[in-house]
Computed example of a mutant assay.
Amino acid sequence: MNYFELFGLKPDYTVDLASVSKTYRELQMQFHPDKFATASQSDKLAAMQKASQINDAFQTLKSPLRRAEYLLSLAGVDLQHEQQTLRDPAFLMQQMEWREQLEEIAQSRDPDSEISAFAKQLACHQDTLQQQLVTTLAAQSYQDAALLVRKLKFMFKLQQELELLEESLLE
């Protein structure tokens, strides 16, 4: 049973996160290992495995990036262990510009406003990529979707680096 089936969803990039959270809590209550404290060893083990599967499914479904990678894996495209380089010159140039911008924030006279502006810029670009991802996945254009996921991986990593920079500047 795949994660979408486990949560009673159709395999789709767009999910209702409130519904996913609600289903997660219901499944956890149903299969929590404490409910099987007096059960046989095999039933305890099965409950523990099911609870673990539910946790993995929840972590995957609630994360846009992990959800996209999972959808691609269901379609036979595994991005988890690939080392393929992104071959989009325009995006590679944009990456270099963003990296420079990130470096300049630390030296800025007003890093708070720079961080805020950069975060908005990244969020806007992420939203655009995610909207494109919805369309390409719906069209079952999996190689194009894989390219978008690779770009999103970079975007999410850059966003994390921005958050780390912000924390370091607050210290």
Rank of each mutant, 00 (worst) to 15 (best):
D110M: 10
A68N: 06
H125L: 12
D88F: 15
N55T: 09
Q126G: 06
Q84G: 13
Q80S: 14
S108N: 08
S73A: 01
L71G: 01
E103S: 13
V77R: 02
R99E: 06
V77C: 04
M93H: 10
P89E: 11
T85V: 03
Y70N: 03
E82Y: 07
S108P: 09
Q94T: 00
Q101Y: 11
Q59F: 12
P64M: 03
D110W: 05
K62V: 02
Q132P: 03
N55I: 02
G76L: 06
H81N: 06
Q84P: 06
A119P: 03
R87H: 09
S116A: 14
K62W: 07
R99H: 09
Q59P: 03
I115V: 04
R66V: 00
I54D: 00
L61S: 08
T60W: 07
T60A: 10
E97P: 07
Q84E: 11
Q95L: 15
M93S: 13
L61P: 04
H125T: 02
A57W: 02
Q94L: 13
L102P: 07
T85R: 08
L102V: 00
A57F: 05
S63L: 10
D88V: 15
D78E: 05
L129S: 07
A90I: 00
E103H: 14
P89N: 10
A117E: 00
C124Y: 15
W98T: 00
D127Y: 15
T60N: 05
T85N: 06
Q84C: 14
P64F: 02
I105P: 02
L79N: 05
L72C: 14
L92Q: 11
L65M: 05
S108D: 10
